[in-house]
């Protein structure tokens, strides 16, 4: 609650930029913003905050702020209580930085209700959000369709020349990689406490067919048990 109070005090004075701390690109941008937001007196013009893991804390900041939304797109919480999202949020960040403030008037230029510079900024943000997985954002999920060929090329290049990056300790599953299932016998077979899991279904018949990927867990268990096809699970080598 102490942190929440601190945030609220800050929220009343300056805009708050919420960023995804698990995304390397977002972290770098937030760091860049933090540097540019420093004034000569040592004060900052905008506050950067990692989104974190507490949905209640975010709702405390703004009752309409949902943690899932916060991770999905950039949010800037304005001192007047409003929220700016996506390209509009980027515009607000640029407006608050002393070094970039001078050109941000262009974002307000409107012709027949159309704001060309703001539209370009929105597009630029959308592209940046899409290409984040290319820069090692483990939390950004499956890359968009148009980014996938580039993503594959980078993967193949890394496979050929080696990838020295340290793998994430807990990877995120994606729709494309969602194939693994590990099951245990039913409780009637004598399990009394949460056991150590050491088995994984490895039969290609059970996992290879993508059309059968989401069949029932029990069906997998019964089939695997019937075929006596459990084998010790080995953690994949990085």
């Amino acid at each position: 609650m102490k942190e929440a109070n601190l945030l609220v005090t800050q929220k009343q004075e300056k805009p708050i930029l919420l960023f995804d701390d698990e995304c390397a690109v977002c972290r770098h941008i937030a760091h860049w913003v933090q540097k540019l937001a420093q004034t000569k007196s040592g004060d900052t013009t905008i506050i950067e905050r990692p989104i974190g893991n507490d949905p209640d804390l975010l709702r405390f900041l703004n009752p309409d702020l949902d943690i899932w939304d916060a991770y999905a797109t950039i949010h800037v919480l304005m001192p007047d209580g409003s929220m700016k999202l996506g390209g509009e949020a980027v515009a607000e960040v640029l407006r608050s930085l002393p070094a970039t403030k001078w050109f941000t008037g262009t974002f307000a230029i409107s012709a027949f209700g159309f704001r060309p510079f703001q539209t370009i900024l929105n597009l630029a943000y959308a592209i940046l959000a899409d290409v984040r997985p290319l820069f090692g954002c483990g939390s950004c999920g499956t890359p968009r369709l148009w980014v996938r060929p580039i993503h594959w090329m980078i993967k193949w290049t890394k496979a050929i020349f080696g990838d020295r990056r340290k793998p994430s300790p807990t990877p995120y599953f994606t729709v494309l990689s969602a194939t693994k299932r590990r099951l245990l016998p039913a409780p009637s077979q004598g399990l009394t406490q949460a056991p150590k899991l050491s088995a994984q279904i490895s039969n290609p018949e059970l996992t290879a067919d993508s059309s059968d990927r989401h069949t029932s867990t029990i069906a997998f268990t019964k089939l695997a048990l019937a075929k006596n096809d459990y084998r010790p699970f080995q953690r994949p080598q990085p």
């Binding site: 729709v175 590990r182 949460a194 056991p195």
Partner: peptide, 16 residues
């Protein structure tokens, strides 16, 4: 999935 404190099944990365 738990039943009486014991794990009876798990699904990793299910389809949404």
């Amino acid at each position: 999935m738990f039943l009486d404190g014991s794990e009876v099944g798990r699904v990793e990365g299910p389809s949404p």
